[in-house]
């Protein structure tokens, strides 16, 4: 494809990214570095601040879960309650990623079954990549950037909750050294979504063709946007391998949670995605 077409594709995906993802990397980094001009970010660093911070959290829950949880003692319920608000946010994020996927030129022309498969397998990878800009070595922004939750606090939760975020921190700290910006991220997310090797795809060829075009656009974007960063394109593609392992481990942890936590009920949309996944 012509360079001009690739630049137009990059612009289009960047615009879609800005339209569907409310917390950009630029905004998140401004909050994390204290450059937003206000001190509104609430810090959760222990159980007390978690209780205080819950009013900030997106706490839309399935009523039956609320009923179950309120019957428990507060110390046992706090992880589950927090986990449920994470699930609500994740379900909302899946909706945002779906809208972004639909904006990729050619995506909605694919077989509908294949669109479902691409999202089923791609969406958790996309969500994990999108966590990276929200994280630094000490913690992560949550709740659309209103809250900073410390890494130490997440590590202090009871097992297996304490094991959920640590691999994402390790990945994100390394990923952030690549210093991608939002316009690079938009193309990278599209590349992840358009993976032609997802299990059960019916018609791989058009997916690979779409991905190849976006890969060209990403390669050109990185050359122009990061002229001094050698091998950035290759390094970024390497991250896709690490990402698959993180998702596999994440799914296994969720399966473990489902077995061990009697009151744990997975959000219906997340259930659909997790079922028979790896």
């Amino acid at each position: 494809p012509e360079a001009a077409d690739l630049r137009a594709l990059a612009r289009h995906l960047y615009e879609a990214y800005l339209k569907y993802f409310p917390l950009t990397k630029a905004k998140a980094r401004a909050i994390l570095s204290g450059k937003t001009g206000d001190n509104a970010t609430f810090v959760i660093h222990d159980m007390k601040s978690l209780m205080e911070g819950e009013q900030f959290l997106n706490c839309r829950q399935i009523p039956i879960q609320e009923h179950h949880i309120s019957g428990q003692g507060p110390t046992n319920a706090v992880e589950l309650r927090f986990f449920h608000s994470c699930q609500s946010r994740s379900a909302e994020a899946v909706r945002e990623v779906t809208e972004f996927a639909k904006s990729i030129p050619g995506f909605t022309d694919l077989d509908l079954n294949d669109q479902v498969t691409l999202l089923k397998y791609g969406v958790i990878e996309v969500l994990i990549i999108m966590m990276a800009p929200l994280m630094n070595k000490d913690g992560t922004l949550i709740s659309y950037g209103q809250i900073f939750m410390t890494r130490e606090f997440l590590k202090s939760l009871r097992k297996p909750f304490c094991q959920m975020m640590e691999p994402k921190f390790e990945f994100s700290v390394k990923f952030n050294t690549l210093e991608l910006d939002d316009s690079d991220m938009a193309l990278f997310l599209a590349v992840i979504i358009l993976s032609g090797d997802r299990p059960g795809l019916l018609n791989v060829k058009p997916i690979e063709q779409l991905q190849e075009t976006v890969l060209h656009a990403l390669e050109l974007q990185l050359k122009l946007n990061h002229p001094d960063s050698l091998q950035l394109f290759a390094k970024l593609l390497q991250k896709m391998t690490d990402l698959r392992q993180i998702v596999t481990d994440h799914v296994h942890l969720l399966q473990l949670l489902k077995k061990t936590e009697v009151d744990m009920c997975l959000h219906p949309l997340l259930q659909e995605i997790m079922k028979d996944l790896y």
């Binding site: 379900a91 899946v94 909706r95 809208e99 509908l112 479902v116 498969t117 089923k120 659909e272």
Partner: peptide, 21 residues
């Protein structure tokens, strides 16, 4: 596949508002 993934399918077919989730 579509049958097993009704919500994903719905999200793909329509613009679903946050309230619907």
């Amino acid at each position: 596949l579509k049958e097993k993934h009704k919500i994903l399918h719905q999200l793909l077919q329509n613009s679903t508002s946050p309230v619907d989730l």
